[in-house]
Design a protein around this nucleic acid. Structure first.
Lengths: 255, 255
DNA sequence: CTATTATACCGACCATCAGTCTATTTCTCA
DNA sequence: TGAGAAATAGACTGATGGTCGGTATAATAG
């Protein structure tokens, strides 16, 4: 095959992009290394020149996700006009927004990320995101406690709960997706909206605020995003990446 | 090899036991099917006579976990002498206790379950446990809301939060274990105790109860369990299950 | 401009893994 | 006793993640 040499950073970025697409659409386990290198148009040797393992590729991907998410949020912390509650709300809104928009295709993200086979991928991304966001959250909560806005004895713990709430949407949606029908989808959206409202009030109370102080996202936000994407069937209709035989299918044997 | 025929239920149970041990000590992914059947002393054919796939084995294992956990908790719901708060506390205490005692070796559970490679296993067990416990939780919370003890608009959501809190210990411990030293261990225990206190108060507030109403476990419980096990080094010193070469180690090639 | 070295890349090869298949032994019960 | 069903064995398969010796290109030195 023709040997194409590219700038290492570009190659690396390309690899990450193709890996991201494949991992999202088919899951970390099901997308094989061969699929990734085929998509990127390089050899095995080249891949292992850039990443020590498939696992390392996943790790780098998660880090990049976290980095991107963090980048879109930095300004919030620096704004001196905001009080702790304002900062917290701004951070939550941004993070919620970023969660949907980080992937180019919001619908693809929803349809593929929240499937059992993406547990590992999702967990890694959230771990990285958590590591990136937690310090910000803790700082904000600390400020709030200091000036009397919030009331809790464990800012780190509360920050973790906030991250948990963010991650929990995964299981809520995954459970609903298990059904598959449009009706199930509707229920999933309804449940998610309701759950977000609950998380808001739960956070209010955990932080000792009056109900309604925390605002993660406006009502109807999830539905708006998902129904908008729903009508665009451009994603998810692609071919399977590898010749994986389905479990249960027998390969032909010698005659 | 000698052909030993056992009662199917016994065989199945044995398979589950060996699989449980291997999955716990080495992780679902790293423990291969060959390891499992070697430990159980049967052939591939025999294994696939009992389980459709490795995945199905994991599923059965998770179901057994959930069944066992549920069994130790059934009496709580039937006790008419308890009010909703009493029931909730009893359920939480039982579940916390069960979480430690289900596995024969508590220390092994802690040391091995809370490692990255056990994410899948852990998630499956918790999914099954959640499916089993959630209805009970929802029912208790509903009762509490009905008689005015609790105050929330989304019993299912609160039940999910309770389960989340239970699962969250995983990441708390896993993060601390990443360090590895005894000092890290101490910090992990401290953090976990603190986190449990936070969860108690968080639940109080989410349910509209005065602080201190919810009691998941007595202070010092985690430390007591873990330090007791600490002095018994009988676990975890076993040989690797397969001849997995470490990543990075080169196998000898043709000369 | 040539020699040398570092870097990017190739692709055949390997061990291992989950899963399949055929064959054989044992159990069941008519 | 004999036939069919259940249980077990183990060789085999395609795919997978990973390794290795080698090659082509870029960068640098002489």
């Amino acid at each position: 095959m023709p040997r194409v040499i590219k700038h290492p950073e570009l190659r690396r970025e390309e690899l990450l992009n193709h890996a991201q697409a494949l991992f999202l659409t088919h899951g970390y386990d099901k997308a094989s290394l061969n699929d990734v290198i085929a998509a990127a148009g390089i050899s095995k040797g080249a891949f292992y020149h850039y990443f020590a393992s498939k696992e390392a590729l996943l790790e780098s991907l998660a880090e990049r996700f976290a980095r991107q998410a963090l980048a879109g949020v930095q300004d919030v912390l620096g704004d001196p006009a905001l009080d702790p509650l304002g900062r917290l709300n701004a951070l939550l809104a941004k993070s919620r927004q970023a969660k949907v928009e980080t992937a180019a295709e919001a619908w693809a993200l929803f349809e593929t990320m929240f499937r059992p086979e993406n547990l590992v991928l999702f967990h890694r991304i959230n771990l990285a995101a958590s590591a990136a966001f937690s310090p910000l959250l803790v700082e904000i909560i600390r400020q709030g406690v200091a000036d009397g806005t919030f009331c809790t004895f464990d800012p780190e713990g509360v920050a973790d709960i906030v991250m948990q709430f963010g991650m929990a949407t995964h299981d809520v949606i995954a459970k609903a997706f298990a059904g598959g029908s449009d009706a199930d989808m509707d229920i999933a959206i309804e449940t998610l909206e309701r759950r977000v409202r609950l998380y808001e009030i739960a956070l209010d109370r955990i932080l000792g605020l009056p109900d309604g102080s925390i605002r993660i996202g406006e009502p109807g936000y999830v539905r708006a995003v998902m129904t908008a994407r729903r009508s665009n069937p451009s994603v998810g209709a692609d071919a399977p990446p590898s010749k994986n035989r389905e479990p249960g299918r027998a390969p032909l044997r010698r005659p």
